[in-house]
Amino acid sequence: MRPLIGLTTYTERATYWVVTDEETVLIPRGYLDMVSTAGGIPVLLPPTADGPDAVESCDGLLVAGGPDIGAGCYGATRGEHDDDPRTERDAADLATVRRALERGIPVLGVCRGHQLLNVALGGTLHQHLPDAVGPDEAAVHSSAPGVYGPVGIGVAPGSRLAEILGTGPLSVRCHHHQAIDRVAPGLRVTARAGEVVEAVELDGATDGAPWVVGVQSHPERSPDDLRLARGLVEAAEHHRAIGRPGIRVAG
Rank of each mutant, 00 (worst) to 15 (best):
R2T: 06
T8I: 01
Y10W: 09
T11L: 08
W17D: 13
V19R: 15
V19L: 12
D21N: 14
E22G: 15
P28K: 09
G30F: 14
G30I: 02
L45P: 09
P46C: 04
T48E: 09
T48C: 11
C58T: 11
G60S: 08
L61T: 14
L62V: 07
G72P: 04
H81R: 07
D82W: 03
D90H: 07
A95N: 10
T96S: 07
R99W: 13
A100F: 04
I105C: 06
P106M: 04
P106T: 02
P106A: 08
V107Q: 02
V110Q: 00
Q115T: 06
V119N: 04
L121E: 03
P130K: 15
A132P: 13
V133A: 06
A139F: 04
A139M: 03
A144F: 08
P145R: 01
P145V: 01
G146P: 10
V151K: 10
V151R: 07
V151C: 08
G152Q: 14
G154N: 07
A162P: 10
A162W: 05
D181K: 11
G186M: 01
E201T: 03
L202V: 03
L202H: 06
W211Q: 00
W211G: 00
P219R: 02
S222Q: 07
P223K: 03
R227S: 07
L228R: 08
R230K: 05
V233I: 13
A235I: 08
A235E: 11
H238R: 12
G243E: 11
R244H: 11
P245W: 13
R248T: 15
R248N: 14
